[in-house]
Design a protein around this nucleic acid. Structure first.
Length: 330
DNA sequence: CGTCTTTGACCCGCGC
DNA sequence: GCGCGGGTCAAAGACG
């Protein structure tokens, strides 16, 4: 059904931007400071070579893609990035680990760290208290909700993508479970949940009210399984797959990635702004099998939903400090 | 028939 | 306490 969506080629030129607009809610911990080594690590992992001081005169730093890629690649890249971020820590890829597990800090005392909830493991879901509808929680909740108990938010990772397609493929299968109108925005926000029964990762997709061409995707939680498969004919991000690795194999394309200077006076962040001309979207959402997921999940389940939050803020295009005040310099 | 989307209703947290 | 907005549920329908 959505095949159209996934297969459809967005207009030719797509500017890709990663940013996060997610409000830094207290429940979430954010780490991902642009000046933090992790940033570079992350970027590197995804195939970007960041030149820390190679900033350009105009104040921008450039990310050199490992080879050029076309939009699909880009999409894949971004998706991959997200995928990696959300992937189980057991993954052999060291890089991922670095970004994810090696970061205890993020847990930032927030709820995410929260012991309770986050138990997170798929094995013992904290009971979702009726998350919302007052209905029995089918599964692990992203927020815990016992009365009197504060909800726990899973780590979030948000980024903005300039695309005509709302739902970007990221290698995982998602099921839409809701849509809501967003205040002050003509565009609705869609809620997706990973189809893996053991995975509690959710993602929200909405368009920027300011710039309708920008899609804001926010991931919450961490996959306890590996990606299913990448877009038809695309790269599979399973285990070893590392963005950097396979990205390097992707076809070259002329592209241009910009990394905006981080350091912002603001508390929130900013993101990496990637711009490129492009071509198509990532693809098919459905992987061939969930089985893999489940199995993988089993293996990595214990890492599910690590309390970490990464967020790429919005506006300004700066990769930034997504670290909440106080968390900085961690 | 199974999977996924749509959509209205409900619940919860938060600000006033 | 009330209202608003966000988030989630689940029935119904669509689709392959």
């Amino acid at each position: 059904m959505d095949d159209d969506k996934y297969n459809r080629d967005p207009a030719s030129t797509t500017e890709f931007t990663t940013q996060s607009t997610w409000p830094l809610d207290p429940d979430s911990a954010y780490f991902f400071a642009s000046h933090d080594v992790r940033d570079n690590t992350l970027l590197t992992e995804f195939g970007w070579n960041f030149h820390p001081d190679g900033s350009r005169p105009d104040g921008f730093s450039e990310l050199d893609p490992i080879g050029t890629r076309d939009m699909s690649d880009l999409a894949a890249t971004s998706s991959q990035l997200v995928a990696d971020c959300l992937r189980p820590a057991d993954s052999s890829s060291s890089s991922t680990a670095a970004f994810r597990s090696s970061d205890p800090a993020p847990a930032v005392g927030s709820a995410s760290t929260n012991p309770s909830g986050s138990s997170t493991s798929s094995e013992d879901p904290p009971e979702k208290s009726t998350g919302s509808g007052g209905k029995p929680p089918p599964e692990i909740p992203s927020k815990v909700k016992k009365k009197g108990q504060k909800r726990i938010r899973q780590p979030r990772f948000a980024f903005m993508t300039k695309s005509e397609v709302d739902h970007l493929e990221d290698g995982y299968r998602w099921r839409k479970y809701g849509q809501k109108a967003v205040k002050n925005s003509p565009f609705p926000r869609s809620y997706y949940r990973c189809t893996n029964s053991k995975c509690t990762v959710k993602k929200r997709v909405e368009r920027s009210s300011e710039d309708p061409t920008i899609v804001i995707t926010t991931y919450e939680g961490q996959h306890c399984h590996h990606t299913v498969a990448f877009p038809r004919g695309g790269v599979i991000a399973q285990e070893s797959g590392f963005a950097g690795h396979h990205l390097a194999q992707l076809p070259p394309v002329s592209s241009h990635f910009m990394y905006y200077p981080a350091i912002q006076p603001r508390e929130r962040v900013s993101p990496v702004n990637l711009t490129r001309t492009t071509s198509h979207q990532l693809a098919s959402p459905r992987g061939d099998d969930d089985d893999d997921d489940d199995q993988a999940a089993g293996a990595g389940s214990s890492h599910c939903l690590n309390p970490q939050t990464t967020s790429v803020p919005a506006d300004e295009g700066l990769l930034g400090d997504i670290v909440p005040p106080g968390m900085r310099n961690r």
